[in-house]
Design a protein around this nucleic acid. Structure first.
Lengths: 191, 191, 191, 191
DNA sequence: TATGAATGAGATTTCATTCAT
DNA sequence: GATGAATGAAATCTCATTCAT
């Protein structure tokens, strides 16, 4: 029962935070969306920030866990990268909301929280950098700072435009387009 | 005096909006930052939204104008792209604040305003697509939808991570890194 | 507790609105008068207009209900008119404040609200017109448009001067004076 | 030239105060309506209250002067009353605005000003009471307190409903209706 | 005379948070 | 666990008024 209410709150909050900015979403709305009273909301979460924290960190952990799983498979780096892109873009399609929570709310709340989020993001970058290192070792990826490369890779995947591209359907085709962009850039390759 | 005050307001507002979310920045703060009274602030701008609108649209127009100038030079596409990247990244370094105004505040305010901003952004994409077309014609850029390519290019340039990379100095080096990433992606080129 | 607070708010608001114009009375004053905080005031009423609406419509309904009761008695028209005058003037004496709410605030707020109020007033006129019709049938009242006569009758009763007359005591005497004015006008009757 | 500006201000103010409540009309609007700046407005009038005072007192004096003229003619009381009614109702039709200035703004501003206005009104009542006295002497009007009768007479003439009746054209007919109401009331006269 | 710019007090309203029941 | 009611700080905005030019 308890978990039920908690779940309803989180669901309502994710939905609202993904559509609107942190400061525009009110605790009243969240409570209403969850079908409970404000009092109850405050029984489950100490504050608005607390609630937002939980949602954000859950989301980041979700990516972190999946990234780690991908690293640990015994695929070659090429396959892993393809896997990674596919996973991120499919998540973007299936769980648009959760992703937008980050987009709409970067730089909010306290600096201490911003640091937490950035640390989590850094973690993700480092996990993906493992794949890059593997690729360099395998001679597939150019030999530059793996962290810089990982940074660019993730920034392309989480860029708002990526989502826009996906909006217009044909996901599979777009995945290949983005994969090719990341691997080969925009210049014409002679063969 | 009048223009002077207007300028002071805009400066104060850009500074604050670039550090904090639209809803966190208060008109009192902006007034205080400009060294004027709230009444005066409202004499110059009808509303907070009005003020924000002006700043945002000014910023987008700035990019749009520069992009157009680059297109109109008689450089080849390769040079133009290099020029473009250099311009954007240098602007990011010199006018960090103005850029962050967008970052922190997309999706805010009214839908009508969001549409305005998106239309401006689309304009920018289309202008850059001209360069891509030229590159395809010159056999430098791969023959795919120029608008899609332009979209990716700009998304990489305006991605938050780009700014992070730049934060840690060595701008010139990073420009080359990003240029290479955009042109050739991350895979190892055999030579 | 809840109803109690609501009542305190309404009492405070009626008192203030009856002494001062809608725009001069502030929500702070109303809250202070009710011994509660502004936040609580807004918990009970969505807006100042909402609060004013409730008071006004309550008041008009009060008159409407009484007027209907008078119509439904089995008195003759003469008695009903006397009854009506007595009721209105006594209410003016006992609930001066509530009446003044209308006086001080007609034409305020939105047009939509003005229409609501005018519709309510028209209802009152129509109800009283029933009495006038009865009087015409009974040969007591002159045979002219009953709605016009009803309009004049009510306008005399609710005229600010009527209240002034009443201020100077001797209510019973003044009731007769007004009754006589309404029935016979000011000209001398020969007998 | 100077009078010209003053005149423009007064005209603009009358127009606005007659349509909206004192507190809803702003000095900016008045200035705009007069085609001048706020600074100029304040050069001609010390304050909003000052401006409103002038308009109101002008209006009341206008009625006062006309009433006095009517009293001083050598008509009999019957004719004078008819004259008075005609004058007031025609003014209501021709200068609706000016009249509404009172209607919309009674009880506003300071108590001291309210007293001034009430004193002016009392003056009007007293002037009209002269006519009533004459009527009593001539055996045309019933022998009751002339001031009370005058009060009722004026209250009927200035009642909002009177204006409504007039709105629907046929002024001449309505004048007779009101005249008859004032003289004979609503009861059926046997003949 | 006339103006544009500036001011500051105060108004309405929102909202995260608390607490007695 | 849950709720309705209450709070108070702070936000946006309005407006009469002033003043240097």
């Amino acid at each position: 029962m308890a978990e039920d209410t908690r779940g309803k709150i989180l669901k309502s909050a994710v939905q609202l935070f993904s559509k609107n900015n942190y400061h525009v979403v009110s605790m009243s709305e969240i409570a209403e969306g969850a079908g409970i009273s404000k009092g109850t909301l405050y029984w489950h979460f100490d504050s608005k920030e607390d609630l937002f924290r939980e949602i954000t960190i859950n989301g980041m952990n979700y990516f972190n866990n999946q990234f780690k799983k991908i690293v640990q498979t015994d695929q070659n780096s090429n396959e892993k990268i393809h896997h990674l892109i596919k996973f991120v873009l499919n998540t973007l399609v299936e769980h648009l909301n959760m992703i937008d929570v980050f987009r709409n709310n970067v730089e909010l709340i306290s600096n201490e929280f911003k640091d937490t989020i950035e640390a989590k993001h850094k973690e993700n970058i480092d996990v993906v950098a493992e794949i890059i290192k593997q690729g360099i070792d395998e001679g597939i990826i150019k030999n530059e700072n793996p962290v810089d490369i990982s940074t660019m890779l993730l920034s392309v995947l989480f860029t708002p435009q990526t989502k826009e591209l996906l909006d217009h359907a044909q996901v599979e085709k777009k995945i290949n387009f983005i994969y090719d962009f990341i691997m080969n850039g925009i210049s014409r390759k002679e063969n």
